[in-house]
Design a protein around this nucleic acid. Structure first.
Lengths: 211, 211
DNA sequence: ACCTGAACACCGTTCAAGT
DNA sequence: ACCTGAACACCGTTCAAGT
């Protein structure tokens, strides 16, 4: 397999006609089904096409390469998490640091563990494909949202707001990812659930000063 | 490719004879060379065998599957990091919390960024293969080392020592991993370098109490 | 305008045959 | 005791031919 051009995430041809849309939809659905039923290791363009009721050729008319199949799913999951965090940020706007820290940690953990099946699939994908592009973009978005949230906290001023927001995102994202990967049983997730809010709170306090 | 049995990480036959040892060595060296010269995407059993000057059949006499080739390299890198952290733990034994926090964060960042070429290769491997087993084992080891280190800090007592040690490991491992993956340029690594010690210190204080 | 599926160039892995 | 490499069962991707 030659290294595919990862910038081509869009479908090769926009699905204008009804039939095209149906086909695209069917292929995406089939991807999820194969993924859940057989695992990443057995996710094959031919298998997906078969499950979608089309031929491989048709599949390649809408998705430039196998990775594009997966990117769609990952993007959907990322959007879900981003949405959940956006809601959390809105609700926490103007609250004080303790509430913000606790709120963000809980929201993040909930979002990541909400659909454990999807998460498992995503981590499987992440283990097999290069998602650094997606992750970088997501990190930047989180950083920005966190920065405005932190600015809204009353009675405190951050010495370096972008740095604090960035670090907070790295903290949440990193610790949850590493724990989910290292211990899929989810046992040590409980520990994370009790400790992560404390980490966030302690850090935010140390990165800011009163008034 | 059928999902290989990951428990078979050992070479298929122990290399007793001199010739065998040489062959094994050559294959391992060839793996690294191919990895560095051509990237994970072009790492092929045939290519490795060719570079090692043997046939594919010979390769499979010593390595049960392609993954075993990679596991060796990853294990070596993990050992390096584990060693560096063990040294750091020894040096920090008995120091107070501020020094321990700063020391661990710096040691971890240095170990992870020491051989940037190897790290890049490792992350490439990690993106393509399932390393959850290795990572879980490494996390447990770190947790234990951290726990005895934290117990040595004078004047403080941790409310839940295993939880604190675990969280510290997740913090270090997660944030560095996520930053390296999301921003391979290494630009935001500088930010991490200045913020991570603060995170560790703030958390350790909040998880302990005086006397 | 959309679909088909044989064909191509590659994989990982095996095993009868050699030295 | 160790090595070879053709052979096998799969991949991802393409493209001439169909409707």
């Amino acid at each position: 397999m030659n290294r595919p051009d990862l910038s081509l995430v869009q479908p090769r041809k926009t699905a204008r006609q009804a039939r095209s849309i149906a086909t695209t939809e069917a292929i995406q659905q089939a991807t999820i089904q194969v993924l859940l039923a057989e695992g990443v290791g057995r996710l094959t363009t031919t298998r997906v096409a078969e499950r979608a009721g089309v031929s491989v050729g048709t599949l390649y008319q809408y998705f430039p390469h196998k990775q594009a199949l997966l990117f769609g799913i990952v993007e959907r999951q990322f959007d879900l998490i981003e949405g959940a965090m956006r809601v959390a940020c809105d609700q926490l706007h103007g609250c004080d640091l303790a509430v913000i820290a606790e709120g963000l940690a809980v929201a993040w953990l909930d979002a990541k563990t909400a659909d454990i099946v999807a998460s498992r699939a995503i981590y499987g994908i992440a283990a097999e494909f290069d998602l650094s592009g997606q992750m970088g973009r997501a990190a930047t978005l989180m950083g920005e949202a966190f920065e405005t949230l932190l600015a809204s906290a009353p009675g405190v001023r951050f010495r370096d707001p972008p740095a604090a927001a960035f670090m907070l995102a790295a903290l949440l994202g990193g610790s949850v990812r590493v724990v989910m990967e290292a211990d899929p049983s989810g046992h040590s997730l409980e520990r994370l659930r009790s400790e992560l809010p404390r980490v966030c709170h302690a850090y935010l306090i140390s990165a800011s000063e009163p008034i």
